[in-house]
Design a protein around this nucleic acid. Structure first.
Lengths: 153, 153
DNA sequence: ATTAATTAAATTGCACACAATTAAATTGCT
DNA sequence: AGCAATTTAATTGTGTGCAATTTAATTAAT
């Protein structure tokens, strides 16, 4: 049932647009920092996952595992990872046990790059003067929305 | 000063990622509806602005005005608008008074398309079973974040 | 053990985003 | 009036996103 008013449709449009705009605005805000690292935003997110993985799990992730984490498929990741390989940050190697899989590992330079991120990001966050509590709320709101969308499919 | 903890850096990364993922998830959720309209998501946002404009303002917007509303430049908008023109939804015409400007107007088909959106979107929102209050909070959170980021530059 | 179904990456093609440059028109300044 | 600075779109080039197809390898079913 649940008839929807004109207002809720407008709210919906606003949210769509703001989500789209905010996502791009954050990417723009990260640009100066990422330029210093020589990474694009999606490349940076991939590196975040690889850095995190190195800490938590013993085995290296496959392209598929990275794709699940980022909600991206091989059509996006394969060329992105090839560029990270060109930059000498990541190594890609076919699995011996299952030759369909490609395992990803950090090169020394890729692992070392992590240390440069902290200070740069701290400055970025500082400069922006954001309210951490608000960020927390926003994150939870996005989490909930993501959950609802996932429940659709 | 305001020294930032490791935790806030992690929150930051999470938020970046979730914002990026949520934005794409919403686009994905809209896909079935937009397929029926024959539009991509950015094209749909452009149409939303043109529909809104038609209601509020007497004169037609220029590419620049649309770009300011969507935070997109001519590099993105020119080809997108040419496609909407191909679809017979939008007309582009050089201003006579200032030949640098290109004015945008809705064709009859473009104006009429608006009527198809309401029902489709109502169903989408209904199916998703989202909490409108939560959406409102999320929108306000995004608004605030956008404001903060805008204040940076 | 073959064959069919499934799976993981890669490839192809299209549509953004966005930086940087170009081209043309207008405005401002003197 | 004449020229520099500014403004608006368009163009070019790179890097995503994502659907659809392809290729190769593995697993499942008979």
């Amino acid at each position: 049932m649940n008839t929807l008013s004109v207002d809720s449709l407008k709210l919906d449009s606003q949210l769509c647009f703001k989500l789209y705009a905010a996502s791009r605005a954050v990417i723009r805000a990260y640009k100066p920092m990422l330029d210093q690292l020589g990474l694009t935003y999606p490349q940076y997110l991939a590196m975040l996952v690889l850095w995190e993985w190195q800490e938590a799990a013993p085995e290296q992730p496959t392209v598929k595992a990275l794709g699940e984490r980022l909600a991206l498929d091989s059509g996006t990741l394969t060329p992105l990872l090839k560029r990270l390989e060109q930059l000498q940050l990541v190594q890609r190697q076919r699995s011996v046990r299952d030759e369909r899989e490609v395992h990803l590992s950090l090169s020394p330079a890729g692992a070392a790059l992590r240390d440069q991120v902290g200070p740069l990001k701290a400055r970025l966050l500082c400069d922006s003067g954001v309210d951490l509590n608000r960020l927390n709320e926003l994150r939870d709101g996005l989490d909930h929305l993501l959950g609802q969308i996932k429940a659709l499919s």
